[in-house]
Simulated scan of single mutants.
Amino acid sequence: MKGNAKGHRPLFDLDLLRAIVMVADCGSFTAASARLHSTQSTVSQKVRRLEDMAGHKLLERGSREVQPTDAGETLLAYARRMLALNDEMIESLAGASVGLTVRLGVPEDFVGGPTTHMLAAFNRKHPQVKLEVTSGLSRDVASSYDRGDLDIALVKQRRNSREAVASWPEQLRWIDSAKYPSILLDPVPLVAFPPRGLYRDDMTNAIEGLGRRWRMSFISSSLSGIQAAVADGLGISLLPARSVTAEHAVLTQESGLPAIETMDIALLHRPTADQVVKELAKMLSRMLATP
């Protein structure tokens, strides 16, 4: 680009800019090519063409995640503006409202309540933004985020096991049925998520630490299933404090069960995320920081 007359400078192709923005947002060429319905080699070629035009290396291709260089950060900022202007022009010419889509993933116990109130407030502030919210087991939400299918995610994890934008301790409670308690049964019946599910190992290790026997009496991948099974007297369980209902009795340390403080709630989004995504992340942070 150096030495070119002003009128003969190359024009950056929006298709190339869209490719590098997608790679930066997804953190990988593989995920970006899937989102663009293209091949990985085609996306790589587009990024190389941009690097040739810019005269700088734009992406650092690490072993785990692709990261923009300083020049890449500069180009990405302009690329987002140019793509946004292109969308605005199309929207104006078509007379239609085309907005940004933000894809959020949360654990099942975050659906409804404060989360819904926060999302409604965000939607009122940004009516042009389309929110796509999915929920499920934390391991599934994390996998979707890693594949590039989500822009922002809340996941539960072992404390400090993964780098996050922010994290908070997960407050856990031992719960029994208020009507049909089973803590004194031998062996102790346990209600739990499937193998590799959250809290399961903490439960069995704690019971064994008391020198007591246990058995799995009910297994479900559904939070509501776990809550109902405990309420109906099928066994005790370990759940987030927000998941305790009036049909449950919280077991205190007088029962001999130890406090479990091994889990975090982690907020994830990519450093190159759109400003709207970062604003939603700040609103989620304020919600989670409120007792």
Score class of each variant (00 low, 15 high):
D13F: 06
L150T: 08
P114C: 02
A206Y: 09
V141S: 07
P68I: 11
G211L: 03
K156A: 12
A96P: 00
P195N: 01
K156Y: 13
R18F: 08
G233I: 01
A84N: 08
L100P: 00
S182H: 13
G225P: 02
S33Q: 03
S33A: 15
Q275P: 08
E170Q: 11
L239T: 01
G148N: 12
L75E: 06
L36E: 07
S221C: 03
L75H: 07
E91I: 00
L85E: 13
E163T: 13
R124L: 06
N86C: 11
N160D: 11
W168M: 07
A228G: 03
Y180V: 12
A31W: 12
L257T: 02
A231M: 02
I20N: 02
D201R: 14
V250M: 03
W214Q: 08
R81T: 14
A229I: 06
A166F: 00
A259Q: 05
P181D: 10
H56Y: 13
V23S: 13
A229K: 09
L223M: 11
M118H: 03
V277F: 04
R64H: 15
D70M: 07
A142M: 09
D202V: 03
V141P: 04
N4D: 09
D146K: 12
T69P: 00
M53A: 12
K156C: 13
R49Q: 11
D15M: 10
L184N: 15
V21D: 05
E208A: 14
A153G: 03
S63M: 04
Q253V: 10
A77W: 15
P258K: 07
A71V: 09
K57A: 14
G7L: 01
P114D: 04
D274Q: 11
A31C: 04
A24M: 12
E132W: 01
E170Y: 04
E91S: 14
G105P: 12
R212W: 00
R270M: 13
V102W: 03
I183N: 09
T134L: 13
L172T: 01
G197V: 01
L239C: 01
V106A: 09
V133E: 05
P187Y: 05
S243T: 03
G62N: 15
T252A: 06
S182F: 11
F110V: 00
A246M: 02
A96H: 06
P169R: 00
P10G: 02
A289L: 01
P194C: 01
V66K: 12
L150R: 13
S143E: 13
D201A: 15
F29M: 15
R80Q: 10
S285D: 14
L267F: 05
L85A: 14
H269N: 08
S224G: 02
E65V: 11
V129L: 03
S38E: 07
W168S: 06
V66H: 07
E88M: 09
L131W: 05
E65R: 15
T74M: 12
R270C: 07
L100I: 06
S220N: 07
A32G: 02
G209R: 06
H248A: 00
K179R: 15
V244C: 04
G256D: 02
V66G: 03
R162S: 14
V66F: 05
R173V: 05
E88I: 03
R80L: 08
Q128D: 13
S177F: 02
S182N: 10
A231K: 03
S97I: 10
